[in-house]
Design a protein around this nucleic acid. Structure first.
Lengths: 200, 200
DNA sequence: TCCGACACGTGAGAC
DNA sequence: TGTCTCACGTGTCGG
């Protein structure tokens, strides 16, 4: 940063006067520079809402507060968009390129993300799977369920859209297994997730 | 806006010289003003990411582009937050003590949390409701679904545990409705949620 | 009247 | 080397 005549002691007579031929070039360039800065100021002032005074200081100050406010708002919206669903279903994200950034467009992959929900209550287990239609995947899922000595009381397999299958199974736990329902639920979830993963 | 010596024609000898006693007050005030402006500039420069040059012009220019970028980002996030995500799962939580951790004990409340999931894909709508067994609630849910001019292609109603019912419905949207699938999904979700709430 | 804000011309440092 | 940017002091308006 250059410093001009800093102190008040007038040393007005400097040794070198500029080349007088184009010393005016200097003033012209400086004029141009000021002009650019002023233009920046008016451009900036148009971006700031509720700007009352057009002071350079006010423009700068309000720009600062406005940027802070915008950043805070972005942060709020961002973490609100990325927060987990309210009743957080355990969900396996099998597509690694699942884009959760704010710039993602409506990707059709999003509708076919396979997800699994297992919940247990009163010795019963509810299994809900939503996955792509795949050859033999239903058989394998049922096979996995039976490996836990569960008695299936009802089930439904419902197609949804072009390539999605929605499976709902309710089964009863064998009482001779001394496992907690949550433990069983977790094991089933992992098992099915593994099956689906092997098909991807 | 004040204008100084505008043109090059040197009329250097102006009529009034300032009161010499506190003409220095003027330079002091101006010095203070410049100081404030400079401080604003450095404060502003700290807010702008990836700022390479510390020019006033660069600071202003990058501040302008940064504000535009932030505004655009806010706009994008805002309209993204208000639209229903495709995969969805905005879920009404009526019982606040729902424990989704893996170490949760067998709380019978878990199985009766009424929750609704609506997702839309390829003009189809999948509706999944899990709620308490209640007199006539199934009829009302189906009635609500039909009010949206949806053609139900398949459905299942499965009991789960002592007092829970799990309902899955897949329906096709009427093409003459020029509504987005997400919009329909959201409306259905609200409608069913209202029905269930009135039964609680 | 004075105070605040502005543009101006200018010397000087930085790359 | 020249070119760019800066702070400075100053004259001049407006409220």
């Amino acid at each position: 940063m250059g410093f001009g005549a800093d102190d008040i002691s007038q040393t007005k007579k400097m040794n070198y006067s500029r080349t007088p031929l184009q010393a005016q070039d200097h003033v012209l360039a400086e004029r141009k520079r000021r002009e650019r800065l002023t233009q920046y100021f008016v451009t900036l002032s148009t971006l700031i809402p509720n700007l009352k005074k057009l002071d350079k200081a006010s423009i700068l100050g309000d720009a600062i507060t406005y940027i802070k406010q915008l950043e805070e708002q972005v942060k709020r919206l961002d973490e609100e968009a990325n927060k987990e669903p309210v009743v957080a279903v355990k969900r396996s994200r099998l597509l690694s390129n699942y884009d959760n950034s704010s710039t993602c467009n409506e990707n059709s992959n999003k509708s076919v993300v396979p997800d699994i929900e297992v919940r247990a209550s009163d010795g019963n287990v509810l299994i809900r799977v939503s996955c792509k239609k795949q050859e033999g995947i239903i058989k394998e899922i049922f096979s996995q369920v039976e490996m836990f000595h569960l008695t299936i009381t009802s089930s439904s397999v419902i197609p949804f859209g072009y390539d999605t299958t929605h499976i709902t199974i309710v089964a009863q736990m064998d009482h001779q297994l001394n496992m907690t329902t949550d433990n069983v639920a977790n094991k089933i979830r992992l098992s099915i997730m593994k099956v689906i993963n092997s098909h991807e």
